[in-house]
Design a protein around this nucleic acid. Structure first.
Lengths: 245, 245
DNA sequence: TACGAGAATATGTCAGTACAAAGTCTTGAC
DNA sequence: GTCAAGACTTTGTACTGACATATTCTCGTA
Protein backbone atom coordinates (compact mmCIF):
# COMPACT_ATOMS: atom_id res chain seq x y z
CA UNK A 1 0.00 0.00 0.00
CA UNK A 2 1.47 3.32 -1.08
CA UNK A 3 1.84 6.01 1.51
CA UNK A 4 0.40 9.43 0.84
CA UNK A 5 2.72 12.21 1.87
CA UNK A 6 1.14 15.48 2.91
CA UNK A 7 2.23 18.16 0.47
CA UNK A 8 1.11 21.73 0.02
CA UNK A 9 1.95 23.57 -3.18
CA UNK A 10 2.02 27.34 -3.38
CA UNK A 11 1.52 28.37 -6.97
CA UNK A 12 2.12 32.04 -6.25
CA UNK A 13 5.57 31.34 -4.84
CA UNK A 14 8.55 32.14 -7.03
CA UNK A 15 10.13 28.81 -6.22
CA UNK A 16 9.39 26.26 -8.93
CA UNK A 17 6.60 23.80 -8.28
CA UNK A 18 8.81 20.79 -8.88
CA UNK A 19 11.25 22.06 -6.31
CA UNK A 20 8.59 22.74 -3.71
CA UNK A 21 7.43 19.20 -4.17
CA UNK A 22 10.93 17.71 -4.06
CA UNK A 23 11.71 19.57 -0.85
CA UNK A 24 8.61 18.39 0.94
CA UNK A 25 9.03 14.81 -0.17
CA UNK A 26 12.65 14.98 0.88
CA UNK A 27 11.87 16.14 4.39
CA UNK A 28 9.15 13.49 4.65
CA UNK A 29 11.77 10.86 3.90
CA UNK A 30 14.38 12.43 6.17
CA UNK A 31 11.88 12.63 9.02
CA UNK A 32 11.54 8.88 8.90
CA UNK A 33 7.89 9.05 7.91
CA UNK A 34 8.85 6.83 5.01
CA UNK A 35 11.08 3.89 5.75
CA UNK A 36 13.61 2.37 3.37
CA UNK A 37 11.87 -0.10 1.09
CA UNK A 38 8.47 1.55 1.48
CA UNK A 39 6.56 1.91 -1.76
CA UNK A 40 6.07 5.44 -2.97
CA UNK A 41 2.90 6.86 -4.43
CA UNK A 42 3.17 6.54 -8.20
CA UNK A 43 3.67 9.64 -10.25
CA UNK A 44 0.32 9.58 -12.03
CA UNK A 45 -1.64 9.39 -8.79
CA UNK A 46 0.57 11.98 -7.13
CA UNK A 47 0.08 14.35 -10.05
CA UNK A 48 -3.67 13.96 -9.90
CA UNK A 49 -3.86 14.35 -6.14
CA UNK A 50 -1.84 17.56 -6.19
CA UNK A 51 -3.33 18.90 -9.42
CA UNK A 52 0.08 19.02 -11.04
CA UNK A 53 1.10 17.74 -14.43
CA UNK A 54 2.96 14.50 -14.68
CA UNK A 55 6.21 16.05 -15.97
CA UNK A 56 6.32 18.36 -12.98
CA UNK A 57 5.87 15.54 -10.50
CA UNK A 58 8.30 13.45 -12.48
CA UNK A 59 10.95 16.11 -12.27
CA UNK A 60 10.55 16.39 -8.51
CA UNK A 61 10.92 12.65 -8.09
CA UNK A 62 13.90 12.62 -10.41
CA UNK A 63 15.59 15.16 -8.19
CA UNK A 64 15.27 12.83 -5.23
CA UNK A 65 16.47 9.87 -7.26
CA UNK A 66 19.58 11.85 -8.16
CA UNK A 67 20.18 12.48 -4.49
CA UNK A 68 19.87 8.77 -3.87
CA UNK A 69 16.75 9.09 -1.73
CA UNK A 70 14.46 7.21 -4.05
CA UNK A 71 14.78 4.25 -6.34
CA UNK A 72 12.68 3.81 -9.44
CA UNK A 73 12.20 0.61 -11.34
CA UNK A 74 10.05 0.63 -14.39
CA UNK A 75 7.01 -1.54 -14.15
CA UNK A 76 7.60 -1.87 -10.46
CA UNK A 77 7.27 1.54 -8.98
CA UNK A 78 9.23 3.90 -6.82
CA UNK A 79 10.55 2.95 -3.40
CA UNK A 80 12.49 4.68 -0.66
CA UNK A 81 16.18 3.85 -0.87
CA UNK A 82 18.43 2.41 1.77
CA UNK A 83 19.43 5.20 4.11
CA UNK A 84 23.11 4.48 3.61
CA UNK A 85 23.15 5.37 -0.05
CA UNK A 86 21.79 8.85 0.49
CA UNK A 87 23.98 11.41 -1.06
CA UNK A 88 25.46 14.20 0.99
CA UNK A 89 26.76 16.20 -1.92
CA UNK A 90 28.36 19.01 -0.04
CA UNK A 91 31.51 20.91 -0.48
CA UNK A 92 32.27 21.98 3.03
CA UNK A 93 35.16 23.55 4.78
CA UNK A 94 36.85 22.11 7.81
CA UNK A 95 35.57 25.00 9.90
CA UNK A 96 31.94 24.29 9.05
CA UNK A 97 32.44 20.58 9.63
CA UNK A 98 33.89 21.11 13.09
CA UNK A 99 31.20 23.57 14.07
CA UNK A 100 28.43 21.24 12.89
CA UNK A 101 29.90 18.41 14.92
CA UNK A 102 29.94 20.54 18.02
CA UNK A 103 33.68 21.17 18.13
CA UNK A 104 34.91 24.65 18.97
CA UNK A 105 37.03 25.66 15.98
CA UNK A 106 39.56 28.47 16.19
CA UNK A 107 42.06 29.83 13.72
CA UNK A 108 45.48 31.45 13.95
CA UNK A 109 46.74 33.09 10.80
CA UNK A 110 50.43 32.22 10.57
CA UNK A 111 51.16 34.00 7.32
CA UNK A 112 49.24 36.31 5.03
CA UNK A 113 51.08 37.71 2.02
CA UNK A 114 51.06 38.25 -1.73
CA UNK A 115 53.13 35.78 -3.72
CA UNK A 116 53.68 34.47 -7.22
CA UNK A 117 53.64 30.73 -7.70
CA UNK A 118 53.60 29.26 -11.16
CA UNK A 119 52.41 25.81 -10.16
CA UNK A 120 49.44 27.15 -8.22
CA UNK A 121 48.61 29.81 -10.80
CA UNK A 122 48.44 27.18 -13.52
CA UNK A 123 46.15 25.02 -11.43
CA UNK A 124 43.90 28.04 -10.96
CA UNK A 125 43.86 28.81 -14.70
CA UNK A 126 45.62 32.12 -14.18
CA UNK A 127 48.67 33.59 -15.91
CA UNK A 128 51.84 32.14 -14.39
CA UNK A 129 52.92 35.49 -12.94
CA UNK A 130 49.60 36.39 -11.33
CA UNK A 131 49.88 37.75 -7.83
CA UNK A 132 48.10 35.46 -5.39
CA UNK A 133 47.06 35.86 -1.80
CA UNK A 134 48.84 33.13 0.15
CA UNK A 135 47.41 32.30 3.55
CA UNK A 136 48.74 29.84 6.07
CA UNK A 137 46.45 29.10 8.98
CA UNK A 138 46.63 26.87 12.00
CA UNK A 139 43.25 25.38 12.74
CA UNK A 140 42.44 24.32 16.28
CA UNK A 141 39.54 22.34 17.60
CA UNK A 142 38.74 22.56 21.29
CA UNK A 143 42.07 24.31 21.81
CA UNK A 144 44.05 21.48 20.29
CA UNK A 145 45.90 21.95 16.97
CA UNK A 146 44.31 19.92 14.20
CA UNK A 147 45.53 21.11 10.85
CA UNK A 148 47.74 23.47 8.92
CA UNK A 149 45.88 25.02 6.02
CA UNK A 150 47.82 26.67 3.22
CA UNK A 151 45.58 28.36 0.67
CA UNK A 152 46.14 30.49 -2.39
CA UNK A 153 43.44 32.81 -3.72
CA UNK A 154 43.12 34.59 -7.08
CA UNK A 155 43.85 38.36 -7.23
CA UNK A 156 40.17 39.28 -6.79
CA UNK A 157 40.41 38.27 -3.15
CA UNK A 158 43.58 40.16 -2.29
CA UNK A 159 41.67 42.37 0.14
CA UNK A 160 40.64 39.56 2.47
CA UNK A 161 42.10 40.41 5.87
CA UNK A 162 43.75 38.33 8.57
CA UNK A 163 41.04 39.39 10.97
CA UNK A 164 38.22 38.11 8.78
CA UNK A 165 39.95 34.73 8.62
CA UNK A 166 40.38 34.40 12.36
CA UNK A 167 36.65 34.92 12.91
CA UNK A 168 35.31 32.33 10.53
CA UNK A 169 36.29 29.76 7.92
CA UNK A 170 37.62 30.62 4.48
CA UNK A 171 34.50 29.36 2.78
CA UNK A 172 32.32 31.49 5.02
CA UNK A 173 34.39 34.57 4.15
CA UNK A 174 34.02 33.78 0.47
CA UNK A 175 30.31 33.11 0.87
CA UNK A 176 29.91 36.57 2.39
CA UNK A 177 31.31 37.93 -0.85
CA UNK A 178 28.83 35.93 -2.91
CA UNK A 179 31.25 33.24 -4.02
CA UNK A 180 30.13 29.65 -3.85
CA UNK A 181 32.51 26.84 -4.68
CA UNK A 182 30.54 23.96 -6.18
CA UNK A 183 33.13 21.59 -7.61
CA UNK A 184 36.53 20.58 -6.35
CA UNK A 185 39.29 18.19 -7.28
CA UNK A 186 40.99 16.72 -4.28
CA UNK A 187 44.09 14.60 -3.97
CA UNK A 188 44.51 12.88 -0.64
CA UNK A 189 47.73 11.34 0.62
CA UNK A 190 49.87 10.85 3.67
CA UNK A 191 53.49 11.46 4.68
CA UNK A 192 55.77 12.07 7.63
CA UNK A 193 55.44 15.61 8.92
CA UNK A 194 57.90 18.39 8.18
CA UNK A 195 59.62 19.98 11.20
CA UNK A 196 57.25 22.95 10.99
CA UNK A 197 54.24 20.65 10.93
CA UNK A 198 55.61 18.70 13.89
CA UNK A 199 56.01 21.90 15.83
CA UNK A 200 52.62 23.38 15.05
CA UNK A 201 50.61 20.19 15.31
CA UNK A 202 52.51 18.77 18.27
CA UNK A 203 53.48 15.55 16.51
CA UNK A 204 56.17 13.03 17.19
CA UNK A 205 58.34 12.28 14.17
CA UNK A 206 56.69 8.90 13.69
CA UNK A 207 53.18 10.28 13.65
CA UNK A 208 52.01 10.96 10.10
CA UNK A 209 50.01 13.78 8.59
CA UNK A 210 47.09 13.29 6.26
CA UNK A 211 47.41 15.66 3.31
CA UNK A 212 44.83 17.08 0.97
CA UNK A 213 45.41 19.21 -2.09
CA UNK A 214 42.36 20.85 -3.53
CA UNK A 215 41.33 23.09 -6.40
CA UNK A 216 37.81 24.47 -6.11
CA UNK A 217 35.64 26.06 -8.79
CA UNK A 218 32.43 28.07 -8.72
CA UNK A 219 29.33 27.37 -10.81
CA UNK A 220 30.65 29.44 -13.72
CA UNK A 221 33.81 27.35 -13.86
CA UNK A 222 36.20 29.94 -12.41
CA UNK A 223 38.81 28.57 -10.07
CA UNK A 224 38.29 30.17 -6.68
CA UNK A 225 40.77 28.51 -4.37
CA UNK A 226 43.84 26.30 -4.23
CA UNK A 227 44.57 24.53 -0.97
CA UNK A 228 47.34 22.45 0.49
CA UNK A 229 46.31 21.08 3.85
CA UNK A 230 47.87 18.76 6.39
CA UNK A 231 45.92 17.20 9.22
CA UNK A 232 46.86 15.36 12.39
CA UNK A 233 46.02 11.88 11.16
CA UNK A 234 45.18 10.64 14.66
CA UNK A 235 42.33 13.08 14.98
CA UNK A 236 41.02 13.48 11.48
CA UNK A 237 39.82 11.50 8.51
CA UNK A 238 38.19 12.56 5.28
CA UNK A 239 34.82 11.23 4.22
CA UNK A 240 33.83 11.21 0.60
CA UNK A 241 31.09 9.71 -1.42
CA UNK A 242 31.71 8.36 -4.87
CA UNK A 243 28.76 8.19 -7.18
CA UNK A 244 28.54 6.75 -10.65
CA UNK A 245 25.00 7.87 -11.31
CA UNK B 1 29.08 32.72 -33.57
CA UNK B 2 27.70 29.37 -32.46
CA UNK B 3 29.37 26.24 -33.72
CA UNK B 4 27.26 23.58 -35.38
CA UNK B 5 28.19 20.10 -34.24
CA UNK B 6 27.63 17.29 -36.72
CA UNK B 7 25.06 14.92 -35.25
CA UNK B 8 23.25 11.97 -36.74
CA UNK B 9 20.18 10.58 -35.02
CA UNK B 10 18.95 7.06 -35.58
CA UNK B 11 15.27 6.92 -34.77
CA UNK B 12 15.09 3.16 -35.19
CA UNK B 13 17.73 2.56 -32.54
CA UNK B 14 16.56 1.42 -29.13
CA UNK B 15 18.83 3.92 -27.44
CA UNK B 16 16.88 7.06 -26.52
CA UNK B 17 17.20 10.03 -28.83
CA UNK B 18 18.30 12.35 -26.04
CA UNK B 19 21.06 9.96 -25.15
CA UNK B 20 22.27 9.58 -28.71
CA UNK B 21 22.45 13.34 -28.92
CA UNK B 22 24.19 13.72 -25.55
CA UNK B 23 26.80 11.11 -26.50
CA UNK B 24 27.66 12.78 -29.78
CA UNK B 25 27.84 16.23 -28.27
CA UNK B 26 29.98 14.84 -25.48
CA UNK B 27 32.53 13.30 -27.86
CA UNK B 28 32.56 16.52 -29.88
CA UNK B 29 33.56 18.39 -26.75
CA UNK B 30 36.03 15.75 -25.62
CA UNK B 31 37.66 15.74 -29.06
CA UNK B 32 38.50 19.38 -28.60
CA UNK B 33 36.31 20.45 -31.49
CA UNK B 34 34.68 22.80 -29.04
CA UNK B 35 36.96 24.79 -26.79
CA UNK B 36 36.14 25.93 -23.26
CA UNK B 37 34.22 29.18 -23.44
CA UNK B 38 32.92 28.53 -26.95
CA UNK B 39 29.26 29.36 -27.40
CA UNK B 40 27.00 26.41 -28.00
CA UNK B 41 24.17 26.29 -30.47
CA UNK B 42 21.01 27.24 -28.63
CA UNK B 43 18.47 24.57 -27.94
CA UNK B 44 15.73 25.92 -30.18
CA UNK B 45 18.00 26.04 -33.23
CA UNK B 46 19.48 22.65 -32.43
CA UNK B 47 16.02 21.12 -32.11
CA UNK B 48 14.97 22.55 -35.44
CA UNK B 49 18.13 21.52 -37.24
CA UNK B 50 17.86 17.92 -36.02
CA UNK B 51 14.08 17.71 -36.28
CA UNK B 52 13.78 16.91 -32.61
CA UNK B 53 11.48 18.44 -30.05
CA UNK B 54 12.86 21.00 -27.69
CA UNK B 55 12.38 18.86 -24.55
CA UNK B 56 14.45 16.11 -26.11
CA UNK B 57 17.29 18.43 -27.00
CA UNK B 58 16.99 20.07 -23.65
CA UNK B 59 17.35 16.78 -21.86
CA UNK B 60 20.47 15.90 -23.82
CA UNK B 61 22.04 19.25 -22.96
CA UNK B 62 21.02 18.84 -19.34
CA UNK B 63 22.87 15.55 -19.22
CA UNK B 64 26.06 17.28 -20.27
CA UNK B 65 25.50 20.10 -17.82
CA UNK B 66 25.23 17.51 -15.05
CA UNK B 67 28.53 16.06 -16.14
CA UNK B 68 30.02 19.51 -15.95
CA UNK B 69 30.77 19.71 -19.66
CA UNK B 70 28.44 22.58 -20.43
CA UNK B 71 27.36 25.70 -18.66
CA UNK B 72 23.99 27.30 -19.19
CA UNK B 73 23.05 30.80 -18.24
CA UNK B 74 19.58 31.98 -18.92
CA UNK B 75 19.34 34.86 -21.34
CA UNK B 76 22.96 34.33 -22.22
CA UNK B 77 23.17 30.92 -23.77
CA UNK B 78 25.09 27.72 -23.33
CA UNK B 79 28.88 27.56 -23.36
CA UNK B 80 31.50 24.87 -23.07
CA UNK B 81 32.85 24.63 -19.52
CA UNK B 82 36.40 24.83 -18.30
CA UNK B 83 38.04 21.47 -18.87
CA UNK B 84 39.08 21.20 -15.22
CA UNK B 85 35.55 21.04 -13.89
CA UNK B 86 34.57 18.08 -16.01
CA UNK B 87 33.23 15.33 -13.90
CA UNK B 88 34.82 11.92 -13.92
CA UNK B 89 32.12 10.20 -11.96
CA UNK B 90 33.62 6.75 -11.76
CA UNK B 91 33.79 4.18 -9.09
CA UNK B 92 36.92 2.26 -9.98
CA UNK B 93 39.02 -0.34 -8.35
CA UNK B 94 42.72 -0.01 -7.74
CA UNK B 95 43.36 -2.77 -10.25
CA UNK B 96 41.59 -0.93 -13.06
CA UNK B 97 43.31 2.30 -12.15
CA UNK B 98 46.75 0.75 -12.29
CA UNK B 99 46.04 -0.99 -15.55
CA UNK B 100 44.72 2.17 -17.15
CA UNK B 101 47.82 4.06 -16.10
CA UNK B 102 50.06 1.44 -17.67
CA UNK B 103 51.21 -0.20 -14.46
CA UNK B 104 51.41 -3.99 -14.31
CA UNK B 105 49.14 -4.97 -11.41
CA UNK B 106 49.41 -8.35 -9.74
CA UNK B 107 47.65 -9.87 -6.78
CA UNK B 108 48.55 -12.37 -4.08
CA UNK B 109 45.69 -13.69 -2.02
CA UNK B 110 46.96 -13.85 1.56
CA UNK B 111 43.79 -15.11 3.16
CA UNK B 112 40.44 -16.32 1.90
CA UNK B 113 37.95 -17.60 4.48
CA UNK B 114 34.43 -17.41 5.80
CA UNK B 115 34.01 -15.28 8.91
CA UNK B 116 31.42 -13.55 11.03
CA UNK B 117 32.00 -9.92 11.89
CA UNK B 118 29.29 -7.89 13.49
CA UNK B 119 30.76 -4.50 12.67
CA UNK B 120 31.13 -5.28 8.98
CA UNK B 121 27.79 -7.08 8.74
CA UNK B 122 26.03 -4.04 10.15
CA UNK B 123 27.72 -1.77 7.67
CA UNK B 124 26.57 -4.08 4.90
CA UNK B 125 22.98 -4.10 6.19
CA UNK B 126 23.10 -7.80 6.97
CA UNK B 127 22.17 -9.71 10.10
CA UNK B 128 24.97 -9.50 12.63
CA UNK B 129 25.71 -13.22 12.42
CA UNK B 130 25.82 -13.45 8.62
CA UNK B 131 28.69 -15.47 7.25
CA UNK B 132 30.91 -13.27 5.11
CA UNK B 133 33.68 -14.02 2.69
CA UNK B 134 36.79 -12.31 4.03
CA UNK B 135 39.59 -11.76 1.55
CA UNK B 136 43.01 -10.28 2.23
CA UNK B 137 45.06 -9.51 -0.85
CA UNK B 138 48.44 -8.01 -1.44
CA UNK B 139 48.40 -5.81 -4.49
CA UNK B 140 51.61 -5.25 -6.41
CA UNK B 141 52.34 -2.80 -9.17
CA UNK B 142 55.36 -3.50 -11.38
CA UNK B 143 56.43 -6.18 -8.91
CA UNK B 144 56.52 -3.77 -5.99
CA UNK B 145 54.05 -4.10 -3.12
CA UNK B 146 51.59 -1.22 -3.10
CA UNK B 147 48.65 -2.07 -0.90
CA UNK B 148 46.99 -4.55 1.40
CA UNK B 149 43.34 -4.95 0.58
CA UNK B 150 41.01 -6.51 3.11
CA UNK B 151 37.49 -7.01 1.78
CA UNK B 152 34.33 -8.61 3.09
CA UNK B 153 31.58 -9.80 0.75
CA UNK B 154 27.96 -10.76 1.45
CA UNK B 155 27.03 -14.48 1.46
CA UNK B 156 25.93 -14.39 -2.19
CA UNK B 157 29.56 -14.20 -3.22
CA UNK B 158 30.89 -16.99 -1.06
CA UNK B 159 31.80 -19.02 -4.14
CA UNK B 160 34.34 -16.53 -5.47
CA UNK B 161 37.66 -18.36 -5.64
CA UNK B 162 41.23 -17.37 -4.83
CA UNK B 163 42.18 -18.07 -8.43
CA UNK B 164 39.61 -15.66 -9.86
CA UNK B 165 40.98 -12.93 -7.60
CA UNK B 166 44.59 -13.46 -8.62
CA UNK B 167 43.69 -13.01 -12.28
CA UNK B 168 41.83 -9.74 -12.09
CA UNK B 169 40.51 -7.11 -9.68
CA UNK B 170 37.63 -7.66 -7.32
CA UNK B 171 35.41 -5.27 -9.22
CA UNK B 172 36.08 -7.11 -12.47
CA UNK B 173 35.13 -10.40 -10.83
CA UNK B 174 31.92 -8.88 -9.57
CA UNK B 175 31.23 -7.29 -12.95
CA UNK B 176 31.49 -10.72 -14.55
CA UNK B 177 28.68 -11.78 -12.28
CA UNK B 178 26.54 -8.83 -13.33
CA UNK B 179 27.09 -6.76 -10.22
CA UNK B 180 27.86 -3.09 -10.63
CA UNK B 181 28.70 -0.95 -7.63
CA UNK B 182 27.51 2.60 -8.27
CA UNK B 183 27.76 4.37 -4.93
CA UNK B 184 30.31 4.15 -2.18
CA UNK B 185 31.05 5.80 1.13
CA UNK B 186 34.75 6.16 1.75
CA UNK B 187 36.64 7.24 4.81
CA UNK B 188 40.26 8.13 4.22
CA UNK B 189 42.89 8.45 6.90
CA UNK B 190 46.50 7.75 7.73
CA UNK B 191 48.44 5.99 10.48
CA UNK B 192 51.68 4.23 11.26
CA UNK B 193 51.75 0.73 9.81
CA UNK B 194 51.13 -2.41 11.80
CA UNK B 195 53.98 -4.98 11.88
CA UNK B 196 52.17 -7.07 9.26
CA UNK B 197 51.77 -4.05 7.00
CA UNK B 198 55.42 -3.14 7.43
CA UNK B 199 56.43 -6.62 6.44
CA UNK B 200 54.17 -6.95 3.42
CA UNK B 201 54.60 -3.44 2.11
CA UNK B 202 58.28 -3.18 2.91
CA UNK B 203 57.94 -0.10 5.07
CA UNK B 204 60.15 1.42 7.72
CA UNK B 205 58.38 2.08 11.01
CA UNK B 206 58.33 5.82 10.32
CA UNK B 207 56.74 5.50 6.90
CA UNK B 208 52.95 5.87 7.13
CA UNK B 209 50.15 4.03 5.38
CA UNK B 210 47.19 5.74 3.75
CA UNK B 211 44.00 3.97 4.76
CA UNK B 212 40.65 3.78 3.10
CA UNK B 213 37.50 2.17 4.41
CA UNK B 214 34.73 1.74 1.92
CA UNK B 215 31.17 0.46 1.71
CA UNK B 216 29.86 0.08 -1.83
CA UNK B 217 26.29 -0.30 -3.04
CA UNK B 218 24.71 -1.30 -6.34
CA UNK B 219 21.98 0.61 -8.16
CA UNK B 220 19.23 -1.16 -6.21
CA UNK B 221 20.74 -0.08 -2.92
CA UNK B 222 22.14 -3.43 -1.83
CA UNK B 223 25.50 -3.31 -0.15
CA UNK B 224 27.92 -5.32 -2.24
CA UNK B 225 31.30 -4.87 -0.60
CA UNK B 226 33.06 -3.67 2.52
CA UNK B 227 36.73 -2.82 2.21
CA UNK B 228 39.56 -1.89 4.55
CA UNK B 229 42.63 -0.93 2.55
CA UNK B 230 46.09 0.34 3.40
CA UNK B 231 48.40 1.82 0.82
CA UNK B 232 52.06 2.70 0.77
CA UNK B 233 51.65 6.46 1.15
CA UNK B 234 54.85 7.20 -0.75
CA UNK B 235 53.51 5.62 -3.90
CA UNK B 236 49.82 6.26 -3.79
CA UNK B 237 47.30 9.02 -3.36
CA UNK B 238 43.55 9.06 -3.75
CA UNK B 239 41.84 11.46 -6.13
CA UNK B 240 38.26 12.43 -5.61
CA UNK B 241 35.92 14.97 -7.01
CA UNK B 242 33.42 16.73 -4.82
CA UNK B 243 30.39 18.13 -6.53
CA UNK B 244 27.60 20.22 -5.08
CA UNK B 245 25.52 20.27 -8.22
C1' DT C 1 -1.77 -28.72 -11.95
C1' DA C 2 1.42 -26.28 -14.80
C1' DC C 3 2.23 -22.87 -17.81
C1' DG C 4 1.70 -19.31 -21.17
C1' DA C 5 -1.01 -15.30 -22.92
C1' DG C 6 -2.50 -11.19 -21.85
C1' DA C 7 -4.23 -7.63 -18.59
C1' DA C 8 -2.80 -4.35 -15.24
C1' DT C 9 0.48 -1.20 -13.52
C1' DA C 10 4.16 1.89 -13.47
C1' DT C 11 7.92 4.17 -15.36
C1' DG C 12 10.40 5.78 -19.83
C1' DT C 13 10.46 8.45 -24.08
C1' DC C 14 8.90 11.99 -27.21
C1' DA C 15 6.20 15.76 -29.30
C1' DG C 16 4.14 20.24 -29.29
C1' DT C 17 2.97 24.50 -27.09
C1' DA C 18 2.73 28.52 -24.02
C1' DC C 19 4.36 31.71 -21.06
C1' DA C 20 7.94 33.45 -17.46
C1' DA C 21 12.29 35.36 -16.35
C1' DA C 22 17.11 36.75 -16.89
C1' DG C 23 20.50 38.98 -19.42
C1' DT C 24 22.01 41.78 -23.40
C1' DC C 25 21.49 45.13 -26.80
C1' DT C 26 19.25 48.85 -29.18
C1' DT C 27 16.99 52.92 -29.50
C1' DG C 28 15.13 57.18 -28.32
C1' DA C 29 14.34 61.04 -25.18
C1' DC C 30 16.42 64.54 -22.54
C1' DG D 1 26.42 62.29 -24.84
C1' DT D 2 24.09 59.70 -21.23
C1' DC D 3 20.94 56.84 -19.44
C1' DA D 4 16.76 54.42 -19.03
C1' DA D 5 12.86 51.98 -21.30
C1' DG D 6 11.84 48.48 -24.07
C1' DA D 7 12.89 44.95 -27.69
C1' DC D 8 15.22 40.70 -28.34
C1' DT D 9 17.44 36.38 -27.33
C1' DT D 10 17.87 32.37 -24.66
C1' DT D 11 16.99 29.41 -21.02
C1' DG D 12 13.44 28.00 -17.25
C1' DT D 13 8.93 26.23 -15.94
C1' DA D 14 4.61 24.01 -16.77
C1' DC D 15 0.88 21.54 -19.20
C1' DT D 16 -1.32 18.17 -22.33
C1' DG D 17 -1.24 14.12 -24.80
C1' DA D 18 0.43 9.83 -26.78
C1' DC D 19 2.82 5.71 -27.13
C1' DA D 20 6.71 2.37 -25.64
C1' DT D 21 8.49 -0.90 -22.44
C1' DA D 22 9.50 -3.48 -18.23
C1' DT D 23 7.47 -6.13 -14.50
C1' DT D 24 4.06 -8.51 -12.04
C1' DC D 25 -0.21 -10.78 -11.55
C1' DT D 26 -4.22 -13.20 -13.02
C1' DC D 27 -6.81 -16.16 -15.48
C1' DG D 28 -7.91 -19.56 -18.77
C1' DT D 29 -6.46 -23.55 -21.23
C1' DA D 30 -4.02 -27.83 -22.17
Amino acid sequence: MAIQVGVSIDRSSPVPLYHQLAEQLSTAIASGMLQPGDPFENEIALAERLSLSRPTVRRAIQELVNQGLLLRRRGLGTTVANRKVHRRAELTSLYDDLKRDGGRPATTVLKHELVRDERVATALDLPADAELLSIIRLRLSDERPLAILHNWLPPVYNDITREALEGEGLYAVMRDRGVRPVVAHQTIGARTPTPAERRHLGLKPSEPVLTMTRVAFDAVGNAVEYGDHSYRAQDYSIEVMVDKR
